[in-house]
Design a protein around this nucleic acid. Sequence first.
DNA 1: TCAGCTAAGTTAGCATGCTAAGTTACCGCT
DNA 2: AGCGGTAACTTAGCATGCTAACTTAGCTGA
Lengths: 145, 145
Amino acid sequence: MEQNLSLNLHVLIARLDRAADRILRAEHDISYSRFLALTLVGELGASTQRTLAEYLGVTEPSVSRMTAVLAADGLLDVQPDPAGGNRRRLSLTDEGKRLVASIRQEFEDRLAAVVAESGVPYAEYAEHTARLLTTFDRLEREAGK
Amino acid sequence: MEQNLSLNLHVLIARLDRAADRILRAEHDISYSRFLALTLVGELGASTQRTLAEYLGVTEPSVSRMTAVLAADGLLDVQPDPAGGNRRRLSLTDEGKRLVASIRQEFEDRLAAVVAESGVPYAEYAEHTARLLTTFDRLEREAGK
DNA sequence: TCAGCTAAGTTAGCATGCTAAGTTACCGCT
DNA sequence: AGCGGTAACTTAGCATGCTAACTTAGCTGA
């Protein structure tokens, strides 16, 4: 049973992500990936595409396509960086801000409800998860990228 | 900070999956998705495509395409069920068995090493994860699919 | 016998992840 | 001025997730 952590994590998160996706599509007509991208621009200040890729944990080509569709949908403003260089300055449009604000809290609450229902201590699980992420990040960086 | 569990889980697992994928491609020339599918057929006895879809937590069309490529690669044997009905009986070929056997243990050990490095208690985290998965499954079923 | 039902699988087309390779903007050195 | 280097982004094409709609195989009841 303890042999299956990687499988269980994979399947659990796959299901959580798909449930999140269904809810967001049904109630707000947006995918979970797009919501995450907007959230990281709006609340964590991902201000260039490279930074956003880093925060999302995806590659730059993925972000390049994502920012293009979000801009086309009128949720994200993408401008050449006035400071120069081959950069894009990212910011939410008013509609993007409205969307992120209306979803974020409601959405985390739903996950908290599932965690509560399971009897798993939220704070501890969250702390363990954060620690694993930090450690894994460090190991990958040390392995030399 | 506790607000970010869903994001941290999403990012952590995305990175773990991609790392697993890189390792498997480099060392065994197979993707992580394909390895998971073979593992569930070989070790958990997923004997029809519908069952495999259930175990993997993906849809039947995804499994349909996956079994086709695995069969084409000579790793999976897909036969009409001799008991009748519109079913496929799934089983590993000898090469599939060899591959799964050679990867599985080595692979779980790598994750265990990351967990140990982080200081997170493996057994507890694994137990919490399994409990969340069970609970989430039940809630989804109750919500009426 | 055959019309309709159910279970299982497939096809078509889209979304979004990836890698490899190309482009653009700026910098620094000669 | 311009050559080459670096950082940031884009393009092309593939892998694999999804939904919607279709097909296939067997069962059941008039």
